[in-house]
Nucleic acid binder design. Structure first.
Length: 571
RNA sequence: CGGGGUGUAGCGCAGUGGGUAGCGCGCAUGGUUUGGGACCAUGAGGUCGGAGGUUCAAAUCCUCUCACCCCGACCA
């Protein structure tokens, strides 16, 4: 490709709308262009990268036994009613009507469609297992698109669905996919950590995310450097410390004027925060919920939502709290009637707690569960933090931010049951097919690669996905010898099927070098009167400072060898 | 949905005592240049996000509205 013919321009200044690194560099390099919030065009350079990523994903999924197909973007709304997931997806669903006023959905994911399809073609265990996938555009009306390609409303995703006869089969499919994902990230030079995850609106029981650790990531993960435990904070477990304050003492009402927050109460009474009980109020699908947790811990809203099996969960408003008969700052689980109380199991790991007395200015001391109050639900709803202890090995946990570049789910049978996808077993009984689903967002993958591979000059693409592998830079094109040799080298590189971007523009050296760096092309060849004195070409890797001169003789063959060695350093 | 911010040329920005729009980059033409974002000359390009209002006169003042960005809520 000749740079002079390439559609797109490089920008010296960063467009004002871009905040994140990958967003800025993608715009400056004209790889993508935004048309509306969370909706982007890919320009030729960006599209080449995306297609290379797509091809790597395809190869690895095919290798793992996946069969590629193509499902429709437009889906009947009824299908989403049938699965019940129009509720959990809620306003994230893009919907539209056809000319007959029939409601349609722009697919945010394809479990419904593929289950319906599999239902028609699978009758027996002999037809299973199946790994079916597609690479296609998804539509999700995100509340807040952000970070360039990191969170968008229209994006290309590889989504695979597994169908198995039994749990053991699902486990095998799940493992195959986890392996395939690891291979994909390795080929992209992307260090991705597999972490336990919540399954969110997709549903299902077990799930893992693949995280690229970077400060710009919007997810927080908790990990243990000792035993390797790693989980999204939404899901993370930890060992709650036992903080018993001795034998049970009689309940007592104490005056605590102006002490409203946990910290104020604890210091007023002179106890650690772990000897207090914290009350938090939520509205879960409209129902008022009283949540109680030990004072040194915080509520994990994802765990709470799962425990309550509700779809909408938000903090109760002040007026809702008052209407419920509670006094904010002095609320108490003691004596609560007709209000659902959910407790974190940390309240059993201590004694003689301080909590509100439900009247202004007073708290109870020496509260003990279950002596003094009952709860409707006792579960783990605590948020894991850096510094907590690992529930597996007891070591200190740490936290980090990450970009979610893949997510796999064991769905189980809830969708196949709802959509009637059954298969006959060997013994003649009819059972719902066991499903799993596995997604990778390609654009986010592209952005994540940049987020952790760039420098002050621009992008640093791995060889495997660079838009072009070689940047041929000819200086002083007025010099007819340079011009003709550069043209000749370009032809020879193309002749060897080397992906080369030939900078044939009449620009100064600085412009060309800077563009080569900004675009992140791995290997740069420079031709100039200076190099021609020794009948050679200067060679420089994007990742290295050193340059070397290569004689022009059989230059295409030499470049090919360099590229092959870089792609397979062991060979 | 709550809070904050921004809309003026392809990009980055300036422009309030209201008086009919400017700078840098980029672009076009000609010339001089060429190893880390060269220089000179000439030139093209804008219904100032939109609608309504105040006024002799609005980018500027008022009202409404739309879009985009950031934080939060939410979210595979």
């Amino acid at each position: 490709m000749r740079f002079s013919k390439l559609f797109g321009k490089t920008f010296r200044q960063t467009p004002a709308e871009a905040e994140g690194i990958s967003h800025q560099l993608l715009l400056r390099a004209s790889m993508v262009s935004q048309i509306a919030a969370g909706i982007y065009s890919y320009l030729p350079l960006g599209w080449r990268v995306l297609r290379k990523i797509e091809q790597i994903v395809r190869e690895e999924i095919d290798k793992a036994g996946g069969q590629e197909l193509m499902l429709p973007v437009l889906q009947p709304f009824e299908l989403w009613q049938q699965s019940g997931r129009y509720v959990s997806f809620g306003e994230s669903l893009f919907t539209l009507k056809d000319r007959r006023e029939h409601e349609l959905v722009l697919g945010p994911t394809h479990e419904e469609v593929i289950t319906e399809l599999v239902h028609r073609y699978v009758q027996s265990y002999r037809d299973l297992p199946l790994l079916l996938y597609q690479i296609q555009t998804k539509f999700r009306d995100e509340p807040r698109p952000r970070g360039g390609l990191l969170r968008v409303r229209e994006f290309i995703m590889k989504d695979l669905y597994s169908f198995d006869v039994d749990e053991a089969g699902l486990d095998r499919s799940y493992k195959k996919m986890a392996e395939a994902y690891k291979n994909i990230y390795a080929r992209l030079d992307l260090p991705a950590l597999m972490v336990e995850a919540d399954s969110g609106a997709i549903g299902g029981k077990e799930s893992h995310e693949f995280m690229v650790i970077t400060d710009s990531g919007e997810d927080e993960i908790i990990c243990c450097s000792n035993c390797g435990y790693a989980a999204n904070t939404e899901k993370a477990q930890f060992a709650k410390a036992e903080v018993s304050a001795g034998a049970l003492l009689p309940l007592e009402e104490i005056s605590t004027p102006d002490a409203k927050t946990i910290e104020q109460v604890a210091s007023f009474v002179g106890v650690p925060t772990s000897q207090t009980l914290k009350a938090v109020f939520y509205s879960a699908d409209g129902e008022f919920i009283f949540v109680v947790i030990r004072g040194d811990l915080e509520v994990n809203e994802t765990k709470l939502r799962n425990a309550l099996k509700c779809s909408e969960l938000r903090l109760a408003t002040e007026s809702q709290v008052t209407i419920a008969g509670l006094v904010a700052g002095f609320a108490s689980p003691i004596g609560m009637k007709d209000i659902k109380i959910v407790a974190d199991d940390s309240i059993t790991l201590g004694s003689n707690f301080i909590a509100g007395a439900n009247k202004p200015g007073y708290h109870f001391s020496n509260i003990n569960y279950p002596r003094d109050f009952q709860v409707d639900l006792m579960v783990d709803i605590a948020l894991a933090r850096s510094g907590h202890n690992c529930s597996k090995c007891g070591s200190k946990l740490s936290s980090a931010h990450g970009i979610e570049v893949g997510h796999i789910f064991k769905l189980g049978t809830f969708l196949s049951e709802k959509l009637g996808a059954l298969s006959l077993n060997r013994d003649g009984t009819s059972r719902p097919i066991i499903m799993g689903c596995y997604g990778i967002g390609l654009g986010r993958l592209l952005a994540a690669i940049i987020e952790q591979s760039y420098d002050e000059k621009g992008i640093i693409w791995p060889l495997s996905v660079a838009p072009y592998q070689v940047y041929l830079c000819s200086l002083c094109l007025d010099n007819s010898e340079v011009a003709s040799i550069a043209e000749d080298v370009y032809q020879k590189l193309e002749g060897e099927s080397i992906e080369v971007l030939y900078d044939d523009r009449n620009e100064s050296a600085g412009v060309k070098f800077n563009d080569a760096d900004l675009l992140g092309i791995p290997l740069r060849l420079t031709l100039s009167p200076r190099t021609l004195k020794s009948q050679s070409v200067e060679v420089k890797w994007r990742t290295q400072k050193e340059i070397q001169l290569l004689p022009l003789d059989n230059i295409a063959g030499k470049v090919k060898t360099l590229l092959r060695k870089a792609a397979n350093p062991l060979k």
